[in-house]
Amino acid sequence: MSAPSSTSTVPSAGAPGGRRRLARGALAAAAIAYVALLLLLPLIGIVVRAFEPGLSIVGDTLSRPEVTHAFLLTAIITLITIVVTTFFGLVVAWVLVRQRFIGRSFLNAVVDLPFALSPVTVGLAAVLLFGTGGWLTDFFMARGIQVLFALPSMILVTTFICIPFTIREVVPVLEEFGLDEEDAARTLGASIWQTFRMVTLPNIRWALLYGIALTTARAIGEIGAVLIVSGTIAGLTETATIYIFTALEERLVAQAHVVALVLALTSILVLVAIEWLHRRNEKARSNA
């Protein structure tokens, strides 16, 4: 149907006629309403509920030893996951973009596999590998290393789930920048390490940081896989998310809400901080 105003030939110019404006208003309203219903309202709900019993509940909850331990455990797992996925993620991204070899497209497909696995399945895989009769159980038992129902397996499953984030953020940027700048650096006398540090890394740093932010958010929030491998030993293998889960089972609803709020805020802050840094950097450059 053509717009009532026949003078307007450019759709984006917006016809003065009311029907088109009405349609646009309706579409925008529908989009906003959908997001509000799905996200904003529940977010407000949880904030309200967390503070319902009074502000003191926040302090009380956060000073409980099992809560501080849960946060500590989440922090340790997240930190190690970030280090491992960043380091190896850079290696894999570099190899995928800069090297041509048989099996490269297979390697490329393997990177996406964690997206195809339910976190629950990942946890189950760890149980099968390290539990009774597992492929690797005897190897670690003989060395006295407890993997399952302990920190190592919790780190392993979280790392597995977070592997694709850094790689998928870095690869397209690395591809886009091409080889010219790296070649230029080498002809100017830079060693491989200097080239990486002074040319490659600065070019991919925002993609890398964004990948790390996604990794952080996912590692902090992981529940399905760690729940299975942790054994849920209170005060020992309980992460922050597991604490929420068990607190709800034990009817400690207020405490669960407080911990949930802290977790959500942390993840949001990480993403916002990266976005803000990026913006500021762009602005500093355009002012130069």
Binding site: L39, I46, L214, I220, G221, F245, A260, L261
Partner: peptide, 16 residues
């Protein structure tokens, strides 16, 4: 939703 832990999302919906 990429930032909020999924369990927290579930809790949010349950609360509301």
């Amino acid at each position: 939703p990429m930032a909020i832990p999924t369990l927290v999302t579930g809790l949010m919906l349950l609360t509301l």
